[in-house]
Amino acid sequence: MTSMTARASFIELDARARAFALLDGGTARELCGPFDRIESPWLEPQGVVPQSDDGVVVVRGKLAGRAVVVIGIEQAFQGGGIGEVSGVKIATALSLAARDSRAGVPTAAVLLLETGGVRLQEANLGLATVAEVCAALLELRPLQPVIGVIAGMLGCFGGMSIAAGLCTELIITSEGRLGLDGPQVIESEAGVAEFDASDHPLIWSIDGGAQRIRTGLADTLVPDDVAAIRAAVIEGLGRGVPADHRSGWIDSLGALLAAVDPTDPPEPADLPAIPSKGDER
């Protein structure tokens, strides 16, 4: 077992460093990088300093000798929020990977998902581009695997959690979180009695990586370690395109929801006991 002192933290890296850390040495090439200055035109008029890559890093390269595009969302910029430019960068990278795959150059994708969802300053534009991201992901995934990685500490929420649910495989750490609505959003809309956003044990007991694995909403639990996450991504790519995807389990996931009484919700520890499609597989 790797000792804590021997680990190289993946969480402590920014999006660009995470992408380069996953790829084979000497093969990485960034597309639409910061020197191309592809910025959001909507932030500065609202008093927000834009970032020259709009918070999304796109890097082509090889992973264990296999052609891959790694798309990383920078959690330190606007909470990983997706706007028009950043969303288009993700969607275009996925569509180009699909184009190359159809042309005889199989290109898989890895999504590094650290995002609170759509950027409030670009709400409608962000929602539209998240739809484009999901469409591009659905275009690529019958051809090549799309591996999602949620490392932490921000997690993956909002519209991009839908994209996470469309991935062929999801890798998550114990520090990672996954949910449609973030705890603060739920608390602001429904009150602290519904979800106390200051109760960190409660949050991780529901949205945390270990719970998402237990309930079948993520596939592989890994430690916060660059080598371990890289190995898990390589293994996921090696499994190829699955015969069916989690997003296709509509009937069984609907039955799971129907089994929950909203007036008497189960405790987090009881959630894995509710039958799911993952149990049948």
Rank of each mutant, 00 (worst) to 15 (best):
H200C: 09
H200T: 15
H200V: 15
H200N: 12
P201H: 05
P201G: 04
L202D: 09
L202E: 06
L202G: 07
L202W: 15
L202R: 13
I203L: 00
I203V: 11
I203T: 09
W204I: 15
W204L: 11
W204V: 14
W204Q: 12
W204D: 11
S205E: 06
I206C: 04
I206Y: 08
D207K: 15
D207M: 15
G208M: 04
G208P: 11
G208H: 08
G208W: 07
G209I: 13
G209S: 05
G209V: 13
G209K: 07
A210C: 11
A210H: 07
A210G: 10
A210W: 06
A210R: 14
Q211M: 12
R212T: 15
R212K: 15
R212A: 13
I213G: 08
I213N: 07
I213Q: 07
R214S: 09
R214L: 08
T215S: 02
T215K: 03
L217R: 14
L217W: 12
L217S: 10
L217N: 11
L217V: 14
L217Q: 13
A218K: 11
A218N: 12
A218F: 13
D219E: 08
D219P: 13
D219V: 12
D219L: 10
D219N: 14
T220R: 13
T220K: 08
T220E: 10
T220S: 05
L221F: 12
L221C: 07
L221P: 11
V222R: 00
P223A: 10
P223M: 10
P223Q: 06
P223S: 09
D224M: 02
D224F: 04
D224L: 03
D225Y: 09
D225I: 12
D225S: 05
D225V: 10
D225T: 09
V226R: 00
V226W: 02
V226N: 01
V226Y: 03
A227N: 08
A227R: 06
A227H: 07
A227W: 03
A228L: 12
A228Q: 12
A228R: 05
I229W: 05
I229C: 02
R230Q: 00
R230T: 03
R230L: 01
R230N: 00
A231T: 07
A231E: 03
A231Q: 04
A232R: 13
A232F: 13
V233C: 00
V233Y: 01
V233K: 00
V233R: 01
I234K: 04
I234F: 07
I234H: 07
I234Y: 05
E235T: 14
E235H: 12
G236E: 07
G236F: 12
G236D: 04
L237M: 01
L237C: 00
L237A: 00
G238M: 06
G238H: 02
G238F: 06
G238Q: 06
G238N: 05
R239A: 04
R239Y: 04
G240P: 02
G240Y: 02
G240Q: 00
